[in-house]
Nucleic acid binder design. Sequence first.
DNA 1: GCGATTTGCCTAAAACTATTAGGCAAATCC
DNA 2: GGATTTGCCTAATAGTTTTAGGCAAATCGC
Lengths: 189, 189
Amino acid sequence: MARAGLTTERLIRAGAELADEVGFDQVTISALARRFGVKVASLYSHLKSSQDLRTGIALFALEELADRVADALAGRAGRDALAAFAAAYRDYAREHPGRYAAARLRLDPETAAASAGVRHAQMTRAILRGYDLAEPDQTHAVRMLGSVFHGYVSLEMSGGFSHTAVDPEESWSWIVDSLDALLRNRATP
Amino acid sequence: MARAGLTTERLIRAGAELADEVGFDQVTISALARRFGVKVASLYSHLKSSQDLRTGIALFALEELADRVADALAGRAGRDALAAFAAAYRDYAREHPGRYAAARLRLDPETAAASAGVRHAQMTRAILRGYDLAEPDQTHAVRMLGSVFHGYVSLEMSGGFSHTAVDPEESWSWIVDSLDALLRNRATP
DNA sequence: GCGATTTGCCTAAAACTATTAGGCAAATCC
DNA sequence: GGATTTGCCTAATAGTTTTAGGCAAATCGC
């Protein structure tokens, strides 16, 4: 019988695509096997478990998103960097809703520490360098930015903003501008 | 055989408790049946489907959370109301992580329109009455507040803030204060 | 090029979840 | 008390997860 040429990498990549198509929590070993035209049990040579697949997709998405954000931030500072960061984040979620959801999967501490999540934190801190915030304010600000961006994207994705006539695009700019002003006001004298 | 006295209400309530104990996505018709000591099929007299159960828990959680927020807001205005709103939101998520997750379930538009989600939107707007914001700024602000609070709670729950030594409590106050200042600055002259 | 070994995908099987159909006894209504 | 409704049951089907063991294809050593 001809072999399908599966690898852990390919499976995780395909899992990420599947997540974008049908939603992250619909990603199943069975569906993945179907997609490759192989039997379910075959995937267990490459994946330890269903949870292992999900974690793999999460790590992949974190990497990919970190790469995008890094690109977006290159050569920018201050308000410009803030806007670019926000845009990269939001665009990724819109292009790849399943991967975005995966990136939000709760990882156990060791896995998280070895993930691209660390880069995300570093980059958020890098943005704040343009705003002269001393600790612990800088940490507070990191948490606030993470919260706003994640919260906004998450609410937008779940259809929370579809009732009103106000353009979400406009709200997004308003929020980014507001945050910029807020951070400038908080600058350590 | 003695009857267990199941009703849709009791099942949803128990489902909410189960969600808090084992996580919202571990809530299953089977687990619920086990908890009541009845056979799985018996629950189908009260619930249309697994999805129906999940939706029921979500609606229940939205109600409960809206009640709490309403209580917290009673008699308060401005910064005081903002802080109370934030606290009610966060406390609920900590006390009832499963229900909180349920409240974030994506509902189809008709269900959402008939849910307590509407009250949530109204109450958020009520808070902003203390800040003199004209439309569309008010809508932008509603979205921002929703984003920050949901985002913060969601990141905190998923362990995102456990790396640094900075007290999450302090960050929370800092953020609430910052938002208050931001909204005051945005007030329409 | 060929034998030995590794590796990849397979079949088989057990366990759990979701869902539907139909039955019998308990509760409820005159 | 008899008729009807209702609640929980058994039975059966289908899908997903996971483990165990097998056979053939790929790969390695010579």
